[in-house]
Write a protein that binds this DNA or RNA. Structure first.
Lengths: 124, 124
DNA sequence: TCGCATAGGGCTAAATTTTGCCCATATTGT
DNA sequence: ACAATATGGGCAAAATTTAGCCCTATGCGA
């Protein structure tokens, strides 16, 4: 694993939630798991832009942070199912708020984001 | 500026809000600006862990995304003040929710985050 | 027996973000 | 004159995250 060189900041609630949600695909993973897509292969199909590797890594992190639970069925080929823990479920309304805000302001957001990118071709 | 090589995903509201909030210090910046810390030097003092450079960069991004407005007073030494735009203000309740969730579950979160880091000294 | 699907981890390279340093401007205080 | 304050951007290096490739294991069907 990667060994951090700059210490984390864990002062307030915003730091703490950031620590568990930062990660390109984490919110999406929680979202789809909540919708009932439980198996890693399903999730990969739902999020085709992500590499299989990162999904695994981020699923592991979500699990270690107690947001999702993993069931390994002792079969071959292997079968694995994730589900939200009670703790993870408490987060869903908050994620719902995030998505709702983004949806409500989708036009404006798309406009400003794209404008920023036009300044230099393919910018961030 | 940095030239992106992997295209952005801007499908749903979650993608869109992520695009404007991703950045180590952005949420904190919005938070403090909302609390009335308007000048860059004040914000830097409130967020001493951040480099002055990034705060500038991220303030610029927040401005270009229409979340904050910048007033430059034609003085010397220069004086600058940021404030939330009406659009930015609509985001504050959502950030409030994030912080509230983090605060409510602070003990649990600190525990699981630290446990993850003990697995290997100084892990992420 | 080859190919596919399922799941996962090691490892390196690439992508992206953040840091830190330097330079520039103008004013006030020492 | 020199230091300090305030703001900001160029630039390269460091830190961190993500992508991609390879290897493992089992069972099913062509």
């Amino acid at each position: 694993m990667y060994e951090r060189k700059i210490p984390l900041t864990l002062n307030c609630g915003l730091d703490l939630i950031a620590e568990v949600l930062y990660g390109k695909w984490k919110i999406r993973l929680l979202w789809f798991i909540n919708e009932g897509y439980k198996r890693p292969s399903e999730l990969l199909r739902k999020i085709p832009d992500a590499s299989r590797r990162v999904l695994n890594v981020q699923l592991n992190e979500l699990e270690e942070h107690g947001l999702i639970a993993k069931i390994i069925y002792p079969q071959a080929p292997p079968k694995v199912e994730y589900s939200l823990t009670a703790f993870g479920q408490t987060l869903m309304p908050v994620i719902g708020e995030l998505g709702r805000w983004g949806d409500e302001h989708a036009d404006h957001l798309r406009a400003v984001i794209l404008k920023r990118m036009e300044q230099t071709p393919d910018d961030k």
